[in-house]
Simulated scan of single mutants.
Amino acid sequence: MRNVERLLIKLVVIQFAFLLIAQALLTQDSFRIYLSKTLYYEGVVNGQQMPAKRQ
């Protein structure tokens, strides 16, 4: 049981490190274009606007 707890703690620490790295990269404008697909979905990158949905 102790080995499982150690493994879980290591996984949590690694996950937190990846979270911090991802957040740091998303604040950089040069990386944001490549990492965030919502920019492409919204049409921000190519300068086009999506038509508004009608309800």
Rank of each mutant, 00 (worst) to 15 (best):
I9E: 13
N46L: 07
G47E: 03
S36R: 01
R54C: 14
F16C: 11
F31A: 08
I14Q: 01
P51C: 01
V4T: 01
K53P: 13
D29M: 09
L26S: 07
I9T: 14
R54W: 09
Q15R: 07
A17C: 10
E42Y: 09
A24C: 12
L25Q: 09
K53C: 12
Y34D: 09
M50H: 01
P51D: 03
V13C: 12
E5D: 12
R2K: 14
Q55N: 03
V13R: 04
L25A: 15
V13Y: 01
Y34K: 07
L25W: 09
L7H: 02
A17P: 05
I33K: 08
N46E: 06
E42H: 06
V45A: 03
I21W: 06
Q48D: 15
L20W: 07
L26F: 13
S30E: 05
Y34A: 13
Q15E: 06
R6T: 13
Y41M: 14
V44L: 04
V44I: 12
A22Q: 11
Q55G: 04
S30W: 13
I14C: 02
A17K: 04
K53I: 10
Q23C: 11
R54F: 05
Q28T: 08
A22T: 10
P51S: 00
A24N: 08
S36E: 08
F16Y: 05
Q55S: 04
A22I: 08
V44C: 00
R32W: 11
R54P: 09
L8T: 12
E5V: 12
L35P: 02
Y40M: 06
N3G: 07
K37F: 07
G43L: 03
V13W: 00
V4S: 01
V12H: 10
Y40L: 06
M50E: 01
T38W: 10
D29C: 06
E5A: 15
R32F: 13
K37E: 13
I9P: 00
E42S: 14
N46C: 07
T38P: 05
F16W: 07
A24D: 02
N46K: 06
Q48N: 13
I21S: 02
N46G: 08
Q15W: 07
L19C: 14
L26W: 03
D29K: 07
Q23T: 06
K37S: 15
P51R: 05
Q49N: 10
L26H: 07
A52C: 11
V13M: 09
I33V: 14
M50F: 03
T38R: 06
Q28G: 08
Q15F: 09
K37H: 02
S36C: 08
R32K: 14
F18L: 10
R54V: 10
N46V: 13
S30Q: 04
R2W: 11
